[in-house]
Amino acid sequence: MTDMDAFRAEVAAWAAGGPGDTARELAARLHPRTAVLLEGRSDVAAVEALAGRAGRDLAAEGVCVLSMDGATNAARYARLLGPSGLGLRLTGLCDDAERAHYARGLAAAGADPDAFFVCVADLEDELIRALGIDRVGELVEAEGEGRALRTFLNQPAQRDRGPLPRLRRFLGTTSGRKIRYGRVLAEGLDPARVPAPLAGLLAFL
């Protein structure tokens, strides 16, 4: 576990009601400058994969990318990490439906309520649209899950859905798959077709 991983873990424990002493001690030693607030671990995987492909080491840059386990926790994380807490600059990604949670949370913590980037539906939707249905299918095949995808798509409940909703649903059907494909889809992107919310976030950091 890296120092930044340890800091992330301690922040999560602090947000869950812990005393936060170790998180504060690590912050004093690591001097992080920015916290990227994301809804889930699949978002973390995608952001870190895309940054790595661009040759960036976000942890070395003082950027802590972390999962809040849901947008409703934005206010709590913003309070602990933002101007009213550790004093980090805050940013992040959110789904359009969760925009209000982020805006209220950042504003209440004294941070810029507009310093985050919005996905139309969610990050998986953005990645699938940027890659295209056929390319996503190729990536799933390369991961050894082509047969699982074809079986899923042939289920009666899926036949009346469009291709994009079906792929989004497939990514969430097995524990850990969504996190895995957050990385796989981000690494498979054409650099010229990075979704606007992800491109904006990385440029902001």
Rank of each mutant, 00 (worst) to 15 (best):
M4H: 06
R8I: 03
A9C: 05
E10H: 08
A12H: 11
A15W: 12
P19T: 15
G20R: 13
T22H: 12
A27F: 01
H31S: 10
T34A: 04
L37T: 07
L37H: 12
A45D: 15
A46N: 06
G52D: 02
R56C: 08
R56K: 15
D57N: 15
A60P: 05
G62Q: 11
G62H: 09
C64H: 03
V65F: 14
S67T: 06
A78H: 09
R79V: 07
L81T: 11
G82D: 07
P83S: 10
P83R: 09
D95K: 12
A97V: 10
E98I: 04
E98G: 04
A100Q: 12
A100L: 11
A109F: 03
A109I: 01
A109S: 13
P113I: 03
A115V: 04
F117S: 06
F117Q: 06
V118R: 04
D122V: 10
D122F: 05
L123A: 08
L127M: 10
L127C: 06
R129L: 15
R129N: 12
R129F: 07
G132R: 14
I133N: 02
I133G: 00
R135S: 09
G137N: 09
G144M: 04
T151K: 06
L153N: 02
R159K: 15
R161Y: 02
P163F: 06
R166L: 11
L167D: 09
L167H: 09
R168M: 14
G172N: 05
T173A: 02
T174Q: 08
R177C: 05
R180Y: 01
G182F: 03
P191G: 02
A192V: 14
A192T: 14
R193N: 11
R193Y: 00
L205G: 04
